[in-house]
Design a protein around this nucleic acid. Structure first.
Lengths: 249, 249
DNA sequence: GACGGTTCTGCGCTTTTATGCATGCATTTT
DNA sequence: AAAATGCATGCATAAAAGCGCAGAACCGTC
């Protein structure tokens, strides 16, 4: 049995039953538990499953269980959110992706800001709803539980109909050579559509995601207009991006 | 049973019943009470529950700030939710409206239920998302902040494309003569569409809303199939509805 | 086909984790 | 005062994870 074959089978089982046991899989496929563990590790690295002691769980299952809020990166995201919020002018149409940074942005919006926000991210929508002056439009379709965002053809088609003035993208990995990359195929499709629909594309990323990459490509760095991190724009880490023609805040 | 799995189950139980007993859980899952106590300790550390002598409580319940002003009607909604949940079979497509009763329904769904839920209600969607086996489809459009539900032509058009097996409607007022009535124009339009799209229409209502009416009409009582209240179906308050040909649970 | 390099897999080892049990303590009930 | 209940602690054990390594399989090149 080939490695890919095995991993596909594991993924199938996880999605079907929401949980798998290493011991079980090892027996079924007649390989050592070590191999299974390595497979699970790889799949976890790709964000497809959640590995736990003794096996793995589907993403949706362990969703019950929100990861501990990392105070350190929280403060950074707050900084990013404030920089991003300053770009929004009254009356604008703003398209936003999902991700925790975007949620922080939603919380950082000034109370008197009147604008229209379009998104498929449920947590972001919940935040926008709590804002007194913001109009909220949600993009409908099936919801991906792992990313808590609407994905699929309907959602993409809907986004393509829009021409927003600003598009905020929370990103998972960025690198001057590889561009923006991610690990969820559906989410990548959505982000691609969003980039097309935004007159100005702004990427939000904490600095630890700089110069890293993931399996699936979203776009080249040339396609983004602005990059916001928690760092000072003069930070040497950011100079390659400035050289690539990106405005850095 | 994996540790995470157990903890997910505990969380679900806590959210459902607002309290759990260690002894109880230990029996249900066939592990020692020690293990349960350690689980509760961990979950408390994550702020998911509140551990007390002998078990744990849901965070929301013991939270003074959330107005549990009427525990009475809360318990009633719970009863309704459980009756409603029993109607759902595996594999069904279920369309639901908004409203607090519907949210209770979402929380009362058995963990092993596999079904597809379609809704425009953000709070309901958030609940569905936390369920491991449910597929969630959100109807997109502009969000009405007062009702936290998507309203507008897009949403209505989308719902009309669907033919769901079950349609659950949280209602504001019902009366044998006036039918179902409501007070929000947009929401009424949506509910009308939902009734059209449901093969079987089930109304959820606490008894105090029986025999009352509001300015805008949704539909006649003839258009609904089932009415669920917290009362016993034999209650005299319900007999007019039974006489009108409605199944009462 | 022979070859060096890479990837994949299984084995033996140690370390970590998860669980249950025994003990002692504090609080409540009888 | 005695009994019962729940909790914290330490300890024992089994299962799982991590690590390094060696053989096997695979790959492109010559």
């Amino acid at each position: 049995m080939l490695k890919r074959e095995r991993q596909a089978y594991i993924l199938h089982q996880v999605n079907l039953h929401n949980k798998v046991l290493s011991s079980n899989l090892s027996q079924e496929m007649n390989v050592s538990e070590d191999t299974i563990r390595r497979d699970l590790l790889e799949l976890t690295g790709q964000g497809k499953i959640i590995k736990v002691h003794g096996g793995a769980l589907s993403h949706s299952f362990s969703n019950f269980y929100t990861p501990v809020n990392d105070i350190y990166s929280y403060a950074n995201k707050k900084t990013i959110a404030e920089k991003a919020a300053s770009l929004i002018r009254s009356g604008m149409f703003v398209l936003t992706s999902g991700g925790t940074t975007i949620i922080e942005l939603a919380r950082a919006l000034p109370l008197d800001l009147k604008a229209t926000f379009i998104s498929g991210s449920i947590p972001a929508i919940v935040e926008y709803m709590n804002h007194p002056n913001i109009e909220v439009i949600i993009v409908g379709d099936k919801i991906s539980k792992s990313s808590k965002i609407t994905v699929g053809g309907e959602a993409i088609a809907k986004i393509k109909q829009i021409k927003a003035e600003l598009c905020f993208l929370g990103i998972n990995a960025i690198d001057v050579h590889h561009g923006i990359t991610d690990n969820d195929w559906d989410v990548v499709q959505l982000k691609k559509a969003m980039i097309e629909s935004g007159q100005k594309v702004v990427c939000l990323s904490i600095s630890e995601k700089l110069n890293s990459f993931q399996p699936i490509k979203v776009c080249d760095v040339q396609q983004i207009d602005t990059l916001i991190t928690e760092l000072d724009p003069k930070d040497p880490l950011l100079s390659p991006y400035i050289d690539a023609g990106i405005q850095v805040l």
